[in-house]
Nucleic acid binder design. Sequence first.
DNA 1: TGTATTTTTACAGTGTCTGCACAAAAAATG
DNA 2: CATTTTTTGTGCAGACACTGTAAAAATACA
Lengths: 205, 205
Amino acid sequence: MSTMSHTTEESVGLRERKKRATRLSLQAAAVELIREHGPDSVTVEDICAQAEVSPRTFFNYFTCKEEVLAPWSREALERIPEAIAQRPAEERPPTAAHRVFDVLLDHTMRSEIWREQIMLLREHPVLAYRTMSNTRALELCLAEGLGRRTGLGEEDTYVKLVAATAMAALRVTIQSWQESPDDTDPRTLLENNFARIESGLRSPD
Amino acid sequence: MSTMSHTTEESVGLRERKKRATRLSLQAAAVELIREHGPDSVTVEDICAQAEVSPRTFFNYFTCKEEVLAPWSREALERIPEAIAQRPAEERPPTAAHRVFDVLLDHTMRSEIWREQIMLLREHPVLAYRTMSNTRALELCLAEGLGRRTGLGEEDTYVKLVAATAMAALRVTIQSWQESPDDTDPRTLLENNFARIESGLRSPD
DNA sequence: TGTATTTTTACAGTGTCTGCACAAAAAATG
DNA sequence: CATTTTTTGTGCAGACACTGTAAAAATACA
């Protein structure tokens, strides 16, 4: 907040900065309150009181209550298609998806609030169902990139299958990562899961 | 309705029959009204008026409005784990899942209302997010069966990965089936997708 | 400083969903 | 058949999620 010399874009105005602050403040308030009191007894009004904005403002930022916990930011999603398309030409589609997930994890993992969001979604599955549009958006970005990459287009069945399977791998990876010791590198787990998929899901011996 | 000599269980009481009728009636009313007027302008009250039950009764059958469109019945789900476990011992886990999905599709496809539910969920993605717990339940049943089958348990990462990947295949299959000519057999599409997965998602040439 | 644009807020209203008490229906019992 | 017990349906009151609208506040810009 106080230091500003290392922001990604120096030319970001006050309005944009305040909007980001408000969004982050609502996310932080939601995480804190839900962690403490559970998802059912926390209302939008409570979250807004903690974040010091009006309840109506909440719905200017999020389409529903649970979206405040959506784990993938809009900025991260927007970079996915191009990142997939730009992977080296010799990589097969699942590998390209794998590498982009590596970067995505490496980037989002740094965010303190991301860990807490992910943890809450795991502890309270009912919250996860409402953030599914965010997960689905990631899958669509993936399909878009793979469609461009292969020249098959994002409507191709093979493309959609790879995207859906990659999401399955990511989901299972994050889940086992949460059940692992604190120093586990999720990229190792992701590596294992993609290796299993690329070997046709043969039984582990 | 009128013939009753070929019901699965002759000993089903009046209470159970009425419950099934009420559930079906609510599902049919919801499908009809939403198809006609769109999901946003149909209220639970409308659905109940059409089905001739009180609004309060609706929520005795479904936990939320959209659950009335959940495509997998409780009965079908309950049979999954045992069906997986009973597949021939030489089948590898993905194949076992594939075969059980074949049976599941063959069975549920006969239901007229199932096609309509699936179509509505595809046309209005916002409805799909609320029925996700039903989809998730299918994945958990799958994992339970695979866990018993392999002796690894349903918490094993390989088991969870196979279950999640199989769900990806099923989802993509149903989607392409809906975009195919009317006489397309979904089991052929499912066959293709599982073949791709078992070959490690190699690019189609 | 004044004006245009964007964001926040208050307010009123609709619809989802829940708990509860009670009525109605079905099943079990003698 | 009359009875008790259990299950299911309903009416009601209320909390909360979410939306449209219009005014107020903050920001951008000249």
